[in-house]
Structure formats: structure tokens, C-alpha cells
Design a protein around this nucleic acid. Structure first.
Lengths: 226, 226
DNA sequence: CGACTGCTTGATGTTGCTCAACGTGCGTGG
DNA sequence: CCACGCACGTTGAGCAACATCAAGCAGTCG
């Protein structure tokens, strides 16, 4: 376990800012920091875990292969906490987490984490805020899956990467077509076809994993009307 | 505002049990209790709200008609808290809540609620647990919508009512076909057809809104394999 | 060079939506 | 009281959207 000073990274987390000094020292003593390369597994579903994972830097996918197919439930960008649900419930992770980009993660002992919640109302409040945000996002995902069809979903995914993740019209897709399909709940062939159509219609430029959004407005319309 | 003693209902909420006596008195002073009949609106989306709603008894649907169609996001059975996300974020409700069965709801002032979180770690922890459970359930909903087809979704809905809500193989569906479709993301015609097929195959007995599950095992299989 | 992986593209089949027709129960107003 | 509109439920026919199957192509690795 690699010891690090948690004080040095508090600015990256609303919740940690609320921890007082001696709590930060305690955190330092019960926290290990691990560097992941893309595609590495942070934790696997059905594994027992006694840690909360704090993503300090990077991009991670939460996924499951419950039903023989892999399904990506959501992406989560630093800074954020993972596996609260599993750990706080019955200490079994319900889902897997795999890095998509180089990621720096802190493993925090669940007992320390729980202690902080009990002792520090500000900290708890920040966690509650974050979970609430997650819930709203989950609802939106749910809406998208339920009523948008394939090209709307793909448009959504592209806009998501451009706006939420890379803040740029041009980016390297960190996903294969297969993964993109797993995420949006459509087949890899459909992803290919739709990207091809968008390319032909000059809505995007694509070359392998290289994507440039040429007509964001139109893409937005496609996303909206499903 | 109808004053009630919140001490008298603490047994119905894990979170409230953790409130200490003077907090319960404060809750009593900033809490109004309202009785709803089925189909009544508890709150509407896009409305400003400064209350957290605690469902003490009953059954409620969380829904939205953002995209011109009504979509039911989830059902929630007492006891549970509603609209934490909206209220804690920007005080605008992102979704509507409508009762399905007779419901008793408490409106709690958001400032009091926040104060409890800050002051009482046990209370905060219970809220965090509940939100975590919600997240796991949301993921399951998401999985269902993304990969199951219509008959799997209907099977799901029937099993949900039988197991989670009514604890009985026989029940009165609290939904019209339309609402059932809005919930599972399929058309009312498909719901009709599928229920008809299940009836013909002796998997269920249906007579209007009266449903009896005859072959739970088979229904489970249909739900599983999508 | 062959084996392999990931991507693309076309052909075919299935699913479930849309539209339309029709029956029923319920409330409203003449 | 009946006529009427209206929401809901059922059923059938046609069609659009996707999945699946199949083949081919480019890049990569041994």
C-alpha cells in the first residue's frame, strides 16, 4: 500500500474539502493510491469489496455482463466516487469498473468512509448531493433508452463525448464499435452503419476512432427527436 | 398546515429513527401531513419546491412528459423519500409524482432536512443508504430497457407487482394498458397483445385489470431471456 | 504468410410501432 | 331517458427499424 498525503489532493473533491485536518490524516493512513492504464479492471462484479473508490483523475466505465452480453451502464469522469452502492449495501459489487483512459484511483477503507459520514455532516451532505445528481442522470439515461431509436442514441453518445468528456468537437473515440453498441443498447453493425450515414451526410467526419463533429446543431436535433 | 407528532410515525422510517428527540420536535413543527387519493398529483415537474416529501404509506409513480409522451420512470412504495435530487440541486423538480394508491405524505422543509443531515450523521447515513439502493435499482431498470424486448418487459412488470408491491400472485393492476406501456417503453397495443398471449398460454389469467399469475416460473424465464 | 481482430456493407428475418376499425363502459348534456 | 363524445381495450394489416447472418477488407501480430 502506497502511502500518500491526502491533503495534497483535496482541491479535487468537494466532499474531501469538508474533511477537517485530523480526518485527512486518518484518510491518508487508510487510503491507497493506484495508477491504472486504459482497459484495466478496477474491480469486478460479484467480488467482495471493503473499499470505496475515489477517482481522482481519468475516465471509467461501469458495466456488467449479467446476461452473457456486456452492457455499459455509464461512464464516470473524475472526480467521483465509485461503488458506494455495493459497499454500503452488502459489500458485494454489483458491477464492474474498467478504466477507459489513464486513471488515478484511491481506495478508501469503508469503515473510515462511514466514520466520516457519521462524524462530518458537511462531508455527508456532499455525498448526498453527488448521489442525487447520479439519480437524475440515471433517469435521463433511462428515458433515452426507452424512447430514442438507434440514430438518436448514437447522436447522444457523440455529443456526450464532445461536451462532457473532451470539450472539443474533435476527439479520439475511446471505444470500439462493439463497446459503443454495448453502451447504447444496439448492435455493433448498427453503430457502424449510423456512423457511416452521419459521415456521408457531413454531420461528422470519421476515420477509424477519430471523430470530428461537423454539424453539432443537426446532431442535437437528431438526438432530440429520437 | 396540519400539525402532527412525528414521534408517532418514526417506526416507519429507518432514517427518522436516528433523529434525536429535539430534532423530532423540530420536524413536527416544520412538517405537514397530507392524504392523497389515487391519481392525485403530489408535485409537478418544473415546479419550484422547497420540500422533501416523505411517503409514509401508499404507492407513487415518478414520471415525466418532457418529450410530449408521458414516461413513468419508476414506482416507489412507502416508506421512502421523494425529490431529494431536485430539491437539493436547484430546487426545481425534474419530475412529477402522482399517487397510484391512497397515500399519506409528509412535506418536510428542505432547510430542516438539510440541518438534520449536517447535524446527525446517522440520519445522513440512512439517506445515503437509501440513495445507493435507488442507484442499483436504476441500473437494473436501465438494463431491462436496453436489452429486453416487449414480452420480457411485460413479464418483468407483472413479476414486479406480484413480488414487490402486492406479495401475491393475484392482484388488481393499478395501471391502464397505456400507463403500463408508458412505464415499460412500449405501445399500449403491444401491452394488450402480450397480455392476451400470456393469457392464451395459461401463463396468467387476466380479466380487465384483474391479473393472476398462473405460471410464475415460466414468466420468470420470459423475463430473464428477454 | 496465415491467423486473428475489428470494421464495414449487403441480404434477410423478426419485432413491435402505427394506423385503422370496432366494441365497451362512463360521464355529460339535451 | 337516449344520444353523444371520450377514454380504454382488443385485433388485424402493413411497414419501418434493427438484429442477425454472411461475406469481404484492412491492419496487426506471431
Amino acid at each position: 500500500m502506497q502511502k500518500t498525503l491526502c491533503q495534497s489532493c483535496i482541491l479535487q473533491s468537494d466532499a474531501a474539502i469538508k474533511l477537517i485536518k485530523n480526518q485527512l490524516n486518518e484518510l491518508t493512513d487508510h487510503c491507497s493510491r493506484v495508477e491504472f492504464k486504459p482497459g484495466e479492471i478496477i474491480f469486478k462484479e460479484n467480488a467482495i469489496s471493503t473499499n470505496v473508490v475515489y477517482i481522482q483523475r481519468g475516465l471509467v466505465k461501469i458495466h456488467t455482463d449479467n446476461f452473457s452480453k456486456d452492457r455499459i451502464l455509464r461512464l464516470t469522469k473524475a472526480p467521483s466516487y465509485l461503488c458506494l452502492p455495493g459497499v454500503l449495501g452488502d459489500s458485494i459489487n454489483r458491477f464492474s469498473a474498467t478504466t477507459i483512459e489513464p486513471t488515478l484511483a484511491c481506495f478508501i477503507d469503508i469503515h473510515v468512509f462511514k466514520k466520516f459520514i457519521l462524524e462530518n455532516g458537511d462531508f455527508a451532505y456532499q455525498i448526498i448531493l453527488a448521489l442525487s445528481q447520479n439519480e437524475i442522470k440515471s433517469f435521463q439515461v433511462s428515458l433515452n433508452l426507452a424512447q430514442k431509436q438507434a440514430n438518436g442514441r448514437v447522436a447522444d453518445a457523440l455529443l456526450y463525448f464532445a461536451r462532457e468528456i473532451y470539450n472539443s468537437q474533435a476527439f479520439m473515440l475511446p471505444f470500439s464499435r462493439q463497446e459503443l453498441g454495448d453502451w447504447m443498447g444496439i448492435s455493433r453493425e448498427s453503430v457502424s452503419r449510423i456512423l457511416g450515414e452521419f459521415h456521408s451526410a457531413h454531420i461528422i467526419y470519421q476515420n477509424g476512432k477519430e471523430i470530428t463533429i461537423l454539424n453539432e446543431e443537426l446532431l442535437e436535433q437528431i438526438s432530440q427527436k429520437g
